[in-house]
Design a protein around this nucleic acid. Structure first.
Lengths: 151, 151
DNA sequence: TCCTAAATAAGAATTATTACTATTTAGGTT
DNA sequence: AACCTAAATAGTAATAATTCTTATTTAGGA
């Protein structure tokens, strides 16, 4: 079986398809933003993406970037990271994964764990709510911050 | 075994003790804020707490409320809810629990699940990071929003 | 090619959060 | 009980983040 969204080409195809499904127009800005965020390793904020996109579209407005990112997340093409009241950050990782979050520096680290992936949702919750996502969130102090504290 | 922080009286005692441990002064404002947030059912923002506290301390500033809430969370007496780039919200629930979050309205619902409580953290993460908290985060649409959509 | 609703740019407005500073106060000391 | 001092607070001001407004442009269907 072909892996879901395995290459950038597949990715773009899928994007175009998804836009049409949703009745959204395919604009150069959207394509650039989509590609940029999908290639981001660490969970970028709208501001970060904005600065990168400006190199391609110098006249683009922050609002367009931000709005597009929100649109993409509504389309299910990326997710909003569960933060803690800091700036909103986006998660382009479409593989099933989980998060570690550093309390000190706010860094979010993706990790993979099969047993976490298999977690069952309690029946009474399934009945009451529509559940789209199950994610384990670890919180603590990252390696960098541990070392810093020792100084 | 006596349950940890089971009553309001215990709670206040513990608060005073904890403040002293941390070298923090016990002020009427702090006590009020602490009590207020601990009695909050649904995860309040600083703004919400501020409005409630004003009924007791009409002259209190927002900054004091916000700063105090952040202090309390640093002391480990409450937690910051993992949101999605919206306003910072606080979680006074000190029992081991997990969260469901509604994508539409942003509501956070606490729930309890023993098997989730027992989740093991992978060794390689334990070695690299200090892990303080393991929480399962479910995401989807809540009952209210499901009904609204049907209109 | 034309048309129209959707999308964008630009900047204003709003909202959330943090910083600054003069004043007050908790709590230790005498 | 009065005094002292560092910490905490009130009252803004400043900053940062996010959303809104409006005139203009454009994607994509007719």
């Amino acid at each position: 079986m072909k892996e879901y969204r395995s290459t950038k080409e597949d990715s773009l195809e899928e994007f175009v398809k998804k836009c049409k499904e949703c009745g959204l127009k395919i604009t150069p800005q959207r394509i650039s933003i989509y590609k940029e965020v999908l290639n981001s390793e660490n969970h970028p904020s709208a501001e970060i993406i904005y600065r990168r996109i400006k190199r391609i579209h110098p006249g683009i407005s922050f609002d367009t970037v931000n709005r597009t990112l929100l649109t993409l997340s509504e389309m299910g093409l990326l997710e909003i990271v569960e933060g803690s009241g800091d700036v909103r950050r986006f998660d382009p990782n479409n593989k099933n994964h989980h998060h570690f979050r550093c309390k000190k520096c706010g860094k979010i680290v993706d990790f993979y764990n099969e047993s976490y992936d298999k977690l069952e949702v309690p029946d009474y919750l399934k009945k009451k709510f529509i559940i789209n996502k199950v994610r384990v969130l670890l919180e603590g102090i990252c390696d960098n911050c541990i070392n810093k504290t020792q100084d």
